[in-house]
Amino acid sequence: MITSKQRAYLRSLSNGISPIFQLGKNGIEDAFLNQIEDALEARELIKITILENSGCDPREASDKICEAIGCEGVQVIGNKIVLYKKSLKKPKIELPERK
């Protein structure tokens, strides 16, 4: 679990990145989750666009993805979600210390 200070830091980092995935009419499938997991391992912080035809609310989609792959939902704003998971091989993002 990340703190609110760490979440704010991750939100500031996410401002500069573009969405790399779109969740569409196929919904949240295993193949989609595997792609997200691989991207999180490589980048640690990703942004996903939730399309209107996905049948999912962005908050609901974020919760399902986070539960399925054990990542942190950083932000849901409009139809975009931001996810974070610390890389096991090469951590790149240094989070502020917990107090």
Score class of each variant (00 low, 15 high):
Gln22His: 13
Tyr9Ser: 00
Lys89Val: 15
Pro58Phe: 11
Lys25Ile: 08
Arg43Thr: 01
Ser4Trp: 04
Met1Glu: 02
Ile28Leu: 04
Val82Thr: 15
Gly27Val: 11
Ser12Asn: 09
Asn34Asp: 12
Gly24Glu: 08
Ser12Trp: 02
Ile28Phe: 02
Gly24His: 06
Lys86Asp: 06
Glu67Ala: 13
Pro91Lys: 10
Pro91Met: 11
Lys85Ile: 01
Gln6Pro: 06
Lys64Asp: 11
Leu40Met: 03
Leu88His: 14
Glu29Phe: 05
Thr49Gly: 06
Asp57Trp: 02
Arg98Ile: 10
Glu97Lys: 15
Glu37Cys: 06
Val74Met: 08
Arg7Phe: 05
Leu33Asp: 00
Glu29Lys: 10
Ala68Asp: 03
Gly27Arg: 06
Lys5Val: 08
Ser18Asp: 15
Leu13Lys: 12
Leu40Ala: 00
Lys90Ala: 14
Phe32Cys: 01
Ile69Phe: 00
Arg7Cys: 13
Tyr84Asn: 07
Asn79Phe: 14
Ser4Leu: 14
Lys47Ile: 10
Ile46Phe: 03
Lys86Arg: 14
Lys92Thr: 05
Ile65Gln: 00
Leu10Gly: 01
Thr49Met: 12
Ile17Val: 13
Glu72Thr: 07
Val82Asp: 06
Gly27Trp: 09
Gln35Gly: 07
Glu44His: 11
Asn53Tyr: 04
Lys90Glu: 14
Gly55Ser: 10
Glu97Ser: 11
Ser87Leu: 07
Gly73Met: 08
Gln22Trp: 07
Gln75Thr: 06
Met1Pro: 11
Asn53Met: 01
Pro91Arg: 07
Ser12Phe: 05
Ala8Asn: 09
Pro91Leu: 07
Ser12His: 12
Glu72Asp: 09
Phe21Ala: 01
Gly55Met: 09
Glu94Ile: 11
Leu40Trp: 08
Gln22Lys: 13
Ser12Arg: 11
Leu83Ser: 04
Glu94Gly: 00
Asp63Arg: 12
Ile50Val: 15
Phe21Asn: 07
Cys66Ser: 11
Val74Tyr: 04
Gln6Glu: 03
Asp30Pro: 00
Glu29Pro: 01
Asp57Thr: 08
Glu37Arg: 10
Lys85Leu: 02
Ser4Tyr: 14
Val74Asn: 06
Leu45Gly: 08
Glu52His: 14
Lys25Asn: 10
Gly73Ser: 12
Ile46Gln: 00
Thr49Glu: 14
Phe32His: 05
Lys99Thr: 11
Gln35Ser: 13
Ile93Cys: 01
Ile48Gly: 05
Arg98Asn: 07
Thr3Cys: 03
Asn26Trp: 07
Lys80Thr: 15
Pro58Ser: 08
Leu95Val: 09
Pro58Met: 05
Cys71Asn: 02
Ser18Leu: 13
Thr49Ala: 15
Pro58Val: 04
Ala61His: 02
Pro96Tyr: 00
Gly16Met: 10
Gly70Met: 04
Lys92Arg: 15
Gly78Ile: 13
Arg43Leu: 13
Glu67Trp: 03
Asn53Gln: 09
Ile20Trp: 02
Ser18Trp: 10
Pro91Ser: 08
Ile36Asp: 03
Lys89Ala: 12
Asp38Thr: 12
Val74Arg: 03
Lys92Pro: 04
Arg98Ala: 15
Arg43Asp: 12
Glu37Trp: 03
Leu88Glu: 15
Lys99Leu: 10
Ile93Gly: 02
Gln35Asn: 14
Asp30Phe: 00
Ser54Trp: 07
Gln6Val: 03
Gln6His: 02
Pro96His: 03
Ile17Pro: 05
Asn15Gln: 14
Glu52Met: 05
Ile93Pro: 05
Leu88Cys: 12
Ile28His: 09
Asp38Gly: 02
Glu97Ile: 03
Asp38Val: 12
